[in-house]
Write a protein that binds this DNA or RNA. Structure first.
Length: 426
RNA sequence: GCGGUUGUAGUGUAACGGUAGCAUACCAGCUUGUGGCGCUGUUGGCGUGGGUUCGACUCCCACCUUCCGCUCCA
């Protein structure tokens, strides 16, 4: 009979113990910033009604067209593994009547997201994101707070050469005008654009601007720019955003070609990446304003703004620059036991140590003292406490200093006190 | 979805159309109450399925997987 062989599904990965420190470090850093800016945590389910994403992210986006993991329940509902966070949070905002809370409502989240794509650098089918949403306020300072919150976290993680790219894609008043002008331009230049661009010119013209093809970029450098078409209110909004950014001295640039692949954005859009000598990392975080989404999903006329960051990508960036993360502390104390009676008494003693908040390792499963001391040594323990048959009978216990190889015998009831003394001396 | 790339013990790596080595880790010993080393030994592998062949880890095909690029995004 052959052994069954299971493999992790495409694009998924195990987060092994040695990588957990990175995830913890990022979460911890993010939490500090979130707490300072008064964000509250929210968790939403990993599965949602597929239509929630189709409505919000957009029917014609790649995410919806080909990247959703969907399934049908026994009740015939179509559910999808969440491909992003904003839609669920807006749903929760509406469903729980958050509009009756003091506005704006500031929320943060952290968790796994899923997109059915071909895996490649910084891209997986299950990936981790943290993000924020600020709902119920349309002041441009909120946009800048979203940017700043993400920037601060990346900065605090030690990432260098961060660059914020900002753009405005207008609103329902002015975007159609821009779109029209762009389509006209694309049609005129269609012979000097690649096939992909021509296809996208029809389905989602704004995204032609993203094309990586050099020849297309050359042509597109003369394309109309969205900022030139903004209506007065959008223009002012952008102007204020940039003014706040100037005050902050955050490195940023206005990138007229920055458009995002989700349909719900209005006005401000942004991405944060690292950029050194013209080499760009690709987005580590991104977001923008979405003033129409709450209404689109059945809520009130609530403006909002948000951002999300890719944890896996941040980790690659951290590893590239050799960012320091602290590894979990190894126990300084090791417990060794000899003989059946001592072994029986060992668990209660360990419990006493745990209650006294003393971290201690053990070598149960290895019964020879030699092996246990070997393990203690390899772990780097400074002190080993030894309970043998003799000590167990006399209610005594040995404390061995691993550096000096000296050991003393103390009463079992004094073990906590004695250990604390020894640790103090270290 | 398209293009390229990858697949040999847990990990890292060899070789060959004819019985798969090496290193490291793990486990067990080195006489049973005292140290990381050392020595000895054991366990464990050709991604899957077909085809060619007397014989395939090796050649061919398909699929799966890995990584990279396109698409797109975090």
């Amino acid at each position: 009979m052959s052994k069954p062989k299971f493999q992790i599904p495409t694009g998924m990965h195990d987060i092994l113990p040695q990588d957990q420190v990175y995830y913890e470090k990022i979460l911890e850093t993010a939490k500090k910033v979130f707490s300072f800016y008064d964000f509250d945590k929210i968790d939403t389910p990993i599965l949602e009604d597929a239509n929630l994403f189709i409505r919000s992210v957009g029917q014609n986006t790649d995410i919806v067209e080909k990247e959703m993991f969907s399934l049908k329940t026994k009740g015939k509902d179509i559910l999808s593994l969440r491909p992003e966070g904003t839609a669920s949070i807006v749903r929760a905002y509406i469903e729980h009547g958050f509009s009756s809370l003091p506005q704006p409502v500031r929320l943060w989240y952290y968790g796994p997201f899923f997109r059915y794509e071909r895996p490649q650098a910084g891209r997986f089918r299950q990936f981790w994101q943290f993000g924020i949403e600020i709902l119920g306020e349309n002041d441009p300072i909120i946009d800048v707070q979203s940017i700043l919150t993400m920037y601060a976290i990346l900065h605090d993680l030690g990432l260098k050469n961060l660059m914020v790219r900002v753009n405005s894609i207008g609103d329902d008043n002015c975007r159609p005008l821009y779109r029209k002008a762009l389509v006209k331009f694309l049609r005129e230049k269609s012979s000097s654009l690649c096939g992909d661009c021509n296809r996208r010119a029809k389905t989602n013209p704004l995204r032609v601007l993203d094309c990586k093809n050099e020849k297309c970029q050359e042509t597109l450098s003369q394309a109309p720019q969205s900022v030139d078409f903004l209506c007065d209110s959008c223009k002012n909004h952008l102007k204020e955003v940039l003014e706040y950014l100037d005050e902050l001295k955050v490195p940023y640039c206005l990138d007229s070609k920055l458009v995002r692949g989700l349909d719900y954005y209005t006005k401000t859009v942004f991405e944060i990446e690292t950029e050194k000598d013209g080499v760009r990392s690709g987005a580590l975080a991104g977001g923008g304003r979405y003033d129409n989404l709450v209404k689109m999903l059945g809520g009130g006329d609530i403006p909002a703004c948000g951002a999300a960051a890719g944890v896996d990508r941040i980790i690659s960036a951290m590893k590239e620059i050799g960012a320091k993360v602290s590894f979990p502390s190894v126990p300084e104390i090791f417990f060794a036991q000899i003989g059946p009676l001592a072994k029986k008494k060992s668990l209660p003693i360990l419990e006493d140590l745990r209650r006294a908040n003393i971290k201690v390792g053990e070598g149960f499963g290895k019964d020879s003292l030699k092996e246990q001391l070997g393990k203690a040594s390899r772990l780097g323990a400074k002190v080993v406490i030894i309970l043998g048959q003799r000590e167990a009978l006399n209610n005594m216990i040995l404390i061995r200093n691993m550096q000096t190889a000296k050991q003393v015998e103390v009463k079992q009831e004094d073990i906590i006190k004695e250990i604390k003394n020894v640790l103090k001396e270290q």
